[in-house]
């Protein structure tokens, strides 16, 4: 499917997989709404996209705030008139063991990784239903396929939720509304994810892991997303499980 001229909304676009995907989609002719909390990063990304001849609009928004999402959608629709691709990519992974009771971090994961996906989907879906087409990508994780050990329990729980929501959403809207749903499940990718971990021991574990094996580049995940969205309209790539070759 030719995606030139289509419109995308990418959450978590200020860095990592979101930023890499915004650049790749823009290079393929997609007009991108780049959404995140850090406006300075988004303006820098927009400048980079514009410098390469692409088209992007900055949407300063927090996915835990439905009002901010509505505002972002108004700006996006006002700028480009429609929305064809939603990439629910914003996510956090503060790692700590359960008996440390870092409940604020648990709640942040539930709010961003789960509710953020629901909030953004709720704001975008009516537009896609109206136009009877669209493609929703949700970023799950290898931790959304198997439960990781000590420290990753709540993160795994939120990513299992994303996997389950993606599958149910696909069942509900793919045939009925002609909207494709893809759940991307990456392994280790070079992003800012480890920086959210406040526990020094766990932070060291995360830092050591990404020097012990060659992690994927964010662009590798962006390529997977492009593969799925460029597939013919009658093909729905439901799940994509992508890992560094050295990750077991």
């Amino acid at each position: 499917m030719n995606i030139n001229g289509k419109v995308a909304l990418i959450t978590g676009a200020s860095s990592g997989i979101g930023a890499a995907t915004a650049l790749k989609l823009a290079a393929a002719g997609v007009k991108v709404g780049i959404a995140a909390r850090r406006a300075d990063r988004l303006y820098a990304l927009r400048a980079e996209i514009a410098g390469k001849g692409g088209d992007a609009v900055v949407l300063e928004m927090d996915v835990t705030d439905p009002t901010a999402i509505e505002r972002g959608m108004e700006t996006l629709i006002g700028s480009y008139g429609s929305i064809d691709i939603l990439f629910n990519n914003a996510g956090v992974m503060p790692v700590s063991e359960i008996d440390r009771f870092k409940t604020d971090e648990w709640n942040a994961m539930v709010d961003i990784n789960i509710k953020g996906v629901l909030n953004t989907t709720a704001a975008v879906l009516p537009h896609m239903i109206r136009q009877h087409s669209g493609h929703i990508f949700n970023t799950s994780s290898i931790a959304g396929r198997k439960v990781f050990g000590p420290g990753f329990t709540v993160y795994s729980a939120t990513k299992f939720a994303v996997t389950a929501f993606s599958e149910g959403l696909r069942m509900e809207i793919s045939k009925k509304h002609n909207i494709r749903v893809t759940c991307i499940q990456p392994g280790g990718v070079m992003t800012e994810l480890p920086e959210q971990t406040t526990d020094p021991e766990k932070r060291k574990l995360l830092d050591d892991h990404r020097t012990s094996i060659r992690f994927l580049d964010p662009e590798d995940i962006a390529d997977a997303l492009l593969f799925a969205t460029q597939a013919p309209a009658h093909v729905n790539v439901a799940e994509l499980f992508v890992m560094p070759i050295e990750q077991i």
Binding site: K175, A233, V235, N236, V237, A238, V242, P244, I245
Partner: peptide
């Protein structure tokens, strides 16, 4: 055709029509 570092472990594909 993905470069060596990228292992695509699993792909589920369905017809968009197949709920």
């Amino acid at each position: 055709t993905n470069p060596r570092r990228v292992a695509i472990n699993e792909i589920v594909l369905r017809p968009t029509d197949q709920a």
